[in-house]
Design a protein around this nucleic acid. Sequence first.
DNA 1: TGCAAACCATAAC
DNA 2: GTTATGGTTTGCA
Length: 199
Amino acid sequence: MIQIYTETLNGTDFAVALCEQQIVTSSFDVNPQRALSKVIDNVMHKLPPSIVFQVVLTPTAEAKAALNMLAAIYSGKDIDITQLTLATSHLPAYTKKVLKITSAIPIGYVSTYGDIAKSAGGGPRAVGNIMAGNLFAPIVPCHRVVKSDFTLGGYGFGLKTKLELLSRERRGFEAEKQVSVAGGMLEVFPVEYVLRKLA
DNA sequence: TGCAAACCATAAC
DNA sequence: GTTATGGTTTGCA
């Protein structure tokens, strides 16, 4: 049984679907009710067939904590996402790997489709496809993945939203660096590179 | 700049 | 099996 919770926080709509305390999918939207319909859509069309799900109107304490976490991430706070358990066991191995690497991009930094591909093996377009199908926005920070020329690339929630998220995450870093992930290294760049490019 | 070709895991037939 | 599909990249004119 999958249970879906939704709540509007600071004017933004958030929704999560939980199964056995694990997050199955999450979403957000500036329009009322839209986050909920996206999550329902994911549950029905992008997950293994589940017998039944229900929308729960009054969130449990756990669900509430998860929703608050989503809101905090959305607002640009540095949240430790390892506190949240994501249900990824049904996903293909390569997809899991890419999501994991993406999760390692620190706040205030971005990486590129190509660099993630280099770290995961495979090609940039495959990475783009996985970002496009990300069930865990904004927990898995696919908004921190941009093109190799530091223009935005795409975003399922609109480029305007991608830019707003990145702007709130700006931390004033100046130099690129490497982070270790999944046994390898990933190149990351200050989000300033992207913001300056657009200015 | 702009365009064409190569790239590569998935999902859908 | 096979084909179609991108949130890309790179090379070259």
